[in-house]
């Protein structure tokens, strides 16, 4: 593992940009191709690249399983929580229009929050799956 100097240097250079791109895709999903599903997978792919190059043990210390499960749960809860919040504001489940002074604005806010929830859930689950598979060696 200590020999792959070129891979390690390139990975160190690339991983911040992959993560940045993931967040860009997450927040820019309204105006271009992208959204929570893609962003979650890209962020997870950055961690998977890190684990492949620097060893699964190191990556597990960066992202312990407890944290990953928490992120995945929080993502699903955030999505469902927006729906419940709409109920509290007097709308129907997942009717985002009531979140702001006008329906279109509220819809936009709701879509942003929901996409963040999707991104967290997908990133968490893909990393959970990868680390579960990689642990067995």
């Amino acid at each position: 593992m200590s020999d792959f100097l070129v891979l390690k240097v390139i990975a160190k250079l690339l991983i911040p940009f992959i993560l940045l791109f993931g967040f860009y895709v997450q927040m820019h999903g309204d105006y271009g191709p992208g959204g929570g599903f893609q962003a979650g997978v890209i962020v997870a792919a950055a961690f998977i690249l890190y684990a492949i190059i620097f060893g699964v043990g190191t990556a597990r210390r960066v992202a312990p399983m407890v944290v990953l499960v928490t992120i995945a749960c929080l993502g699903v809860l955030l999505y469902a929580g927006v729906g419940v919040a709409n109920l509290a504001y007097g709308g129907r489940f997942l009717e985002y229009g009531v979140l702001a002074y006008e329906a279109a604005h509220g819809n936009h806010i709701g879509i942003l929050i929901v996409e963040i929830g999707v991104g967290m859930a997908v990133a968490g689950v893909i990393m959970i799956i990868f680390f579960s598979f990689a642990r067995r060696r």
């Binding site: 599903f37 799956i129 598979f133």
Partner: peptide, 17 residues
């Protein structure tokens, strides 16, 4: 299909497990 692709990878992972 966008959602189905991500669902497919997670169900494939269950099968592989």
């Amino acid at each position: 299909i966008l959602t189905a692709i991500v669902v497919s990878v997670s169900t494939l992972a269950v099968g592989l497990a």
